[in-house]
Simulated assay, not measured.
Amino acid sequence: MSPHDPATRPALDRLAPDRLTTVIESIARAAALAKRRADEVTLIAVSKTQGNESILPLLAAGQRDFGENRVQEAQAKWPALREVYPETILHLIGQLQSNKAEEAVALFDAIHSVDRPSLVAALARAMDRSGRRPTCFIQVNIGDEEQKGGCAIGDLTALLREARTADLPVAGLMAIPPAGVDAAPYFALLAKIARDQGLAGLSMGMSGDFETAVTIGATHVRVGTALFGARQVGDGA
């Protein structure tokens, strides 16, 4: 079943609210286990590679926070969607090139991948020029993986100092644990680092581990497959 086939639209319209309800209930259960309120957790629907026909049923079901990986892809679809749902909150969750900082600041309400001094400087300039101040999360390379973006743990204090000096609105930390291992220790480490740095925001947890992340203190979880279903072969994912 392809979401791009008009014949499948009714099925998507039915599945979207059911999947959304399931994820919201899972967040609530995990929050209750940790003696937290469910409304302390923002659910970000990861809509990268998804077309408008897949996103609209979730919007109609009440979901308002969405995450995109690339500035150009978001620019292609979200202005039209926001004309219908202007209260939508957009999160940039993918790596950001410094030369795209101005476009990112113009479009997104939160940027979860601030990871180097050059990007801090570019975002500060863009915010000063535009007057828009998207919430920022410092991305930490929590598993010390060469192939992943994120600031090294040892460099975090210096990067945070630069971000605060530049007056970026830093809300917290973001991380993606290594694949194929228990994510809990990495979530716990990120939570400890955030506490030590006086930061409340924790952007961590995806479709396979968001419940664990919530029990450890996540304030933002980034969920794609559990909301949209498995990606289709050939959809660019």
Rank of each mutant, 00 (worst) to 15 (best):
G229A: 03
D209F: 05
G172T: 01
D39Q: 00
I89C: 11
D13H: 14
T215R: 03
G180H: 10
T8R: 15
E25Y: 11
P17I: 02
P3A: 10
Q95V: 05
I142V: 07
A152K: 15
R29I: 01
E102D: 14
G234E: 00
K48I: 13
R14M: 14
E146M: 13
A76Q: 06
C151A: 13
I111T: 12
G150T: 13
K35S: 12
M204K: 12
H91G: 09
R64Y: 08
G234H: 02
P117E: 13
R37E: 04
V71T: 05
I193E: 03
L81P: 14
D144A: 15
I24N: 04
V223C: 08
G217Q: 06
M206V: 02
I55D: 08
S113W: 14
V46C: 08
A179W: 05
P79E: 00
Q139A: 01
A32C: 11
L159I: 09
A30V: 00
A122S: 14
Q50D: 11
S118D: 15
S47C: 05
R37P: 12
R132G: 12
D5Q: 13
R125Y: 13
P86F: 00
I142E: 00
V71P: 10
A183Y: 00
K35H: 03
E73C: 04
Q75R: 15
L90M: 05
A158S: 02
V41E: 09
Q147R: 09
L92M: 14
A110D: 11
L160V: 04
G131C: 08
A152H: 15
R231I: 02
D65T: 07
Y186L: 07
A213N: 07
L92V: 03
I27Y: 02
E25L: 14
P6C: 10
D39A: 08
R125P: 03
A226E: 03
R14P: 12
T49G: 06
L119W: 08
Q75L: 15
T88A: 10
L56S: 11
D5L: 00
A218Q: 05
L81C: 12
R195Q: 06
G51A: 15
A226Y: 10
D13S: 13
A34R: 14
A213L: 01
P17N: 08
V114I: 12
D5A: 13
T88E: 00
A80I: 12
S54A: 13
A171R: 04
T49D: 03
V114Y: 05
I138W: 13
A200V: 02
Q232A: 08
E211V: 06
G62C: 01
A152L: 15
R29N: 12
A152E: 15
E53H: 04
A32H: 02
E146W: 09
I216D: 00
A28K: 13
